[in-house]
């Protein structure tokens, strides 16, 4: 059973400056699947990804990748593990001083001693997979948001990783680019035989491409299931999220004293004219 799990998270807790961000998360991510982690802004989704990548050390709990506990590794071991991980950042995070080609070639040049001719073939292959072979000589600042995201995706898979992580891959994209990225995530995952973890709050796109969804709220997993179950879920939190309702378990109002009090209505009524 546990052999086909790539990532296993047990009772993960994380405090940021004494304030709990994650309060006991359990997740099991099987090999070969695309899993989405959803939740409102600032619920700790990105923190969770950082913990899996070993960039943040959790306060308590364990993150296992390939059965090894990431948060107990030394720096060199973390780096060895990361060579088999790819990550796509929110806005691509392309190196602005390198061309598209050099960006995709970066991991290959840093981690392998391959001859330049071979690197060229590999890079063109990856760029072809995201449909941007023609953009190889452009600089990142002349790419559109969607194109930058695709180049970053090509870079993330340059070393054929076993695990690909996506941090808000759909943010700020037009509907067409959004669909393109969604399809690429699914296609690349299946073509490379990789496993994907995607942090997002774009529910409609995720329902189409993922195999399993976790909902996080207030640092805890509040709901989970395959897309079919999620669509028909009666859980109020999931319903609010799927149907984009303004008010529900996630309140519209930030906690505040009664409105009348803030306006001074109560005070004015009690006191005489000043």
């Amino acid at each position: 059973m546990s052999e086909d799990l790539l990532v296993q998270i047990e009772n993960l807790q994380f405090d940021y400056g004494g304030k709990p961000v994650l309060r006991g998360i359990d997740m099991r991510i099987p090999k070969g699947k695309v899993v989405a982690i959803m939740g409102g802004s600032g619920c700790g989704k990105t923190t969770l990804l950082r913990c899996i990548g070993g960039q943040l050390r959790p306060t308590a709990g364990k993150v296992r990748v390939h059965g090894a506990v990431v948060n107990e590794m030394r720096q060199a071991e973390v780096y060895a593990l990361r060579r088999r991980m790819g990550m796509l950042f929110q806005f691509g995070a392309l190196f602005t001083d390198l061309s598209v080609f050099d960006n995709v070639a970066f991991p290959l040049r840093e981690h392998t001693d391959l001859p330049e001719a071979l690197i060229q073939n590999l890079v063109l292959m990856k760029l072809e997979a995201v449909g941007l072979r023609g953009a190889r000589d452009l600089m990142p600042n002349s790419l559109s948001g969607g194109m930058a995201r695709r180049v970053a995706l090509a870079r993330a898979v340059a070393l054929d990783p076993a695990l690909i992580m996506y941090d808000e891959p759909f943010t700020g994209l037009d509907p067409i680019s959004l669909g393109v990225i969604g399809q690429l995530i699914r296609r690349l995952n299946d073509a490379l035989g990789a496993t994907s973890i995607m942090v997002t709050h774009d529910i409609q796109e995720s329902l189409v491409i993922v195999d399993y969804i976790y909902f996080i709220s207030d640092g805890k997993v509040v709901a989970e299931g395959a897309p079919e179950d999620i669509r028909h879920s009666e859980d109020p939190f999931v319903r609010q999220f799927v149907h984009a309702e303004a008010d529900g378990p996630v309140p519209f109002h930030m906690p505040a004293p009664p409105f009348a009090e803030d306006l001074g209505v109560a005070a004015a009524r009690g006191a005489a004219h000043v």
């Binding site: 780096y79 060895a80 991980m85 929110q90 806005f91 392309l94 190196f95 602005t96 991991p107 840093e110």
Partner: peptide
């Protein structure tokens, strides 16, 4: 600072390349 703000340093770190050294 700009590389940090646009997550380029974090990305590099995730690619197992030490940003301090590189």
């Amino acid at each position: 600072g700009l590389m940090k703000a646009t997550e380029q340093l974090t990305a590099m770190d995730m690619m197992a390349v030490d940003p301090v050294a590189r």
